[in-house]
Nucleic acid binder design. Structure first.
Lengths: 169, 169
DNA sequence: CCTCCGACTGGTCAACCTGTCCAGCACCCC
DNA sequence: GGGGTGCTGGACAGGTTGACCAGTCGGAGG
């Protein structure tokens, strides 16, 4: 992860359509170099995908909310999986659940959900609560996005001063 | 956003490297159709980008946390921007802040941050608190990812039963 | 009923890019 | 010095892109 990698990622983020050849021209290096760098970034797991990024709002889901869930710690049925796994599996079946993480703090699990409207949000929450393992759910609606999801500044920071830390070689 | 769009997006997510021609073969439609569909999805804002997705963990930032910030509602300096804007601008300068949203509920703003370690997280939090407009900050560390960020199920759901709602041709 | 219009098909074309291979060279470390 | 690694600049065949075309289909509207 050096400065060239940073420039390469920045270029690709700004203009994803540029091919390897064009990128090499922009960066002023040989095509093989760009190819090797890209392969390495993918191999190291820094680049996880090239898929199209979808905008939930454009899909008709303009409302974003964070749900803080409390999970049944000792399943009353006390069957197999802890509450976490059961809830995770349940959440995975709901399309409106975009991501979910177990967390420290008051709630046991944070889920990011979207909905077609505030009214529709109720439906989504009900879907989440459909699992017995979910004890409680507190909702925080995202009103406006102040900083849109981004990773490039982080990559540049890592490129700038991580020459040898986690950057294996 | 019909069923073909859904299949196209699913294909692109699974194998982003396939070109338009290959996609048309897989989907069993003409190349021009795939091209037109893609153009339309981009034009409608459903597809917002094709950039490489970066993994903060692979960049050396394996710790993820959600910060709930309380913002100075009535700026003591009472100068120009409300606390929100000032804080948003401040957060935008911190590479470790991946995203931030104003919210309802207890906190005024939720920020997703990453750090190199739990110790390093303190440094990041301090950076966030460097703004005078931030009154309080409560930290929730994400322990494990139960559902990784995804939008495809949502797109498929929208494709399935949104034929005419927000898909105003 | 007929016509218009948008969408899809299936085909062509030249230009370009990709993946892969090569030799040469500079650099670093053992 | 030797070996390994990374970058350069070049070459090649093959596949892909973007543009264009005529023809067909179905629905909306006159």
């Amino acid at each position: 992860m050096d400065e060239l990698d940073g420039r390469l990622l920045a270029l690709l983020r700004d203009e994803p359509r540029v091919g390897v050849l064009e990128a090499s021209r922009r960066l002023g290096v040989a095509r093989g170099t760009v190819q090797a760098r890209l392969d390495r970034l993918v191999a190291r797991g820094v680049v996880t995908g090239w898929g199209p990024e979808l905008d939930p709002a454009a899909l008709g889901y303009p409302v974003t909310a964070f749900l803080s869930l409390e999970i049944q710690q000792a399943p009353s049925g006390a069957s197999t999986a802890g509450g976490h796994d059961a809830v995770a599996a349940h959440l995975a079946t709901i399309p409106e659940v975009l991501e979910a993480h177990t967390t420290t703090g008051g709630g046991d699990l944070v889920a990011r959900v979207v909905a077609r409207s505030n009214t529709d949000l109720q439906r989504v929450i009900d879907a989440v609560l459909a699992s017995d393992a979910v004890v409680r759910c507190s909702t925080t609606i995202a009103l406006a996005t102040q900083v849109a999801y981004r990773t490039l500044p982080l990559a540049l920071a890592a490129a700038g001063r991580a020459e040898g830390s986690s950057a294996g070689r």
